[in-house]
Design a protein around this nucleic acid. Structure first.
Lengths: 255, 255
DNA sequence: ACCTGAACACCGTTCAAGT
DNA sequence: ACCTGAACACCGTTCAAGT
């Protein structure tokens, strides 16, 4: 019954709430040879996560990759959770934010943001997982949220509706990117092509009598390459959400 | 560089694709005393996951809870991943599906489904995590998808747009429910009330100069209880998506 | 200041054996 | 058919120690 957590004392909500990154250790170096530092550790972490996935990442593997004893890393980072939170924030830097500045159509800016965010999620499946784990209040992550917020304010929506609209867009993209990332990871780890794996899964599902109703729909999706349907569906869904925001803008503000 | 996975040989895409549950072991029992079975194992797994979370779940803890040696469980289940996939499917049974049958307004049915799905996600944060991990092709899960599909077909959307519309609704709900679950879990594990934790995080974020722009927005959100804003935002976002589907229905079908 | 080594309390799972 | 025991190859992390 008692949790009896094997981890450290009391869980903190986020690294960013308890002092944040402490790279400012003054790297005089020259005394000891190794040359580790916070940035290098985080960068290598991201590399390993991209290459082998979250399941195969460990502090010991990281240390090995850095050519160092497992415990060395702990001088720069309090624990594994904190390190992963740093790595997660790093990935948000990939999303370009200029579209928030140029005063163009807010819908185009939303499309741009959504597309980049989706690509980041699909490219780094581990990040998608960690976003569901941590508070997401690192600097890069907050910069993204701020920019997204700025864009949405150009939509003409009442202020109290902005958070809801943001959720409609970005929680959708998060969900979509998450399953996309899981899917490509599955293809990679089973060594199957996207289309073959889809066919395999479709076959297994269709065999079960209780799912008969989905048969025709699945068959329809097997006509073209899966990737193409993924694009089409994402595009249509995104346009739904944007059109919905516009439609809601015209309704009574305090429904 | 080489993955060198510590897990079993080659990863399978899903339990449900390789024979599925094999409870039919014929439980003559009476010879050995223990009385384990597939159902009991999965139910206990769900209980433990609800009580202690995914991080604190282990095969050894499960065995202890069942009053049994760790390896006993392996007679009923191939490995931990498979067991978690069974547990995940179980949770979909919570979502009532009648709304798909009654011929009422499709928008009301979507609202019902979205609300139940959200509640399930928020109630079982571990499930939300596992949905991002597995293929989600268990019987209960597929029953839910089928029902959701049936509802969406009543929207009047062109067939090729149904999957996109489904994604807009349910990927959004998935994202929203996921962060909700993580949030309530965080509150529980840090032993802080929702509103206190929000205040704490808001304070930490506002201290950082680069985020100045978000200050007023955050302040606005601290006026009422956080839970209330969560409801408002979810509601508005869902109405956006529904309104968007209706708006798209009127546009050129093959954009 | 920066890094190592040994040790602790955990994991999931294989394999051979008991009844 | 069902369950146990011992063992293997891993974990994250503490703590005391080296330079």
């Amino acid at each position: 019954m008692a949790p009896a957590a094997p981890r450290a004392s009391k869980p903190q909500a986020s690294v960013w709430l308890s002092g944040g990154a402490r790279d400012g250790r003054r790297r005089k170096s020259s005394q000891q040879p190794v040359g580790l530092d916070h940035g290098k550790i985080v960068r290598t972490t991201v590399q390993l996560l991209d290459a082998n996935g979250l399941q195969n990442f460990s502090m010991r593997r990281l240390a090995a990759e850095l050519g160092v004893t497992p415990m060395s890393v702990y001088w720069y980072v309090d624990n594994k959770d904190d390190l992963l939170e740093y790595a997660l924030d790093e990935v948000f830097a990939e999303i370009p934010l200029q579209a928030a500045e140029t005063g163009g159509d807010w819908r185009d800016a939303v499309r741009e943001f959504a597309t980049s965010y989706r690509r980041t999620l699909a490219t780094h499946p581990w990040a998608s997982r960690l976003m569901g784990e941590y508070a997401n209040v690192g600097p890069k992550s907050v910069a993204f949220s701020t920019a997204a917020h700025r864009v949405m304010r150009r939509s003409g929506l009442a202020p109290e509706h902005i958070p809801g609209a943001l959720a409609a867009v970005y929680q959708f993209v998060y969900g979509y990117g998450t399953v996309e990332g899981r899917w490509t990871e599955l293809c990679r780890s089973t060594g199957t092509s996207e289309d073959d794996l889809f066919r395999e899964m479709a076959g297994a599902v269709r065999d079960r009598p209780e799912y008969g109703e989905l048969g025709p729909i699945i068959d329809q999706r097997m006509e073209g390459p899966v990737a193409q349907y993924r694009e089409r569906d994402f595009g249509f869904a995104l346009e739904c959400v944007i059109a919905g925001i516009e439609a809601m803008r015209g309704r009574a503000p305090h429904a």
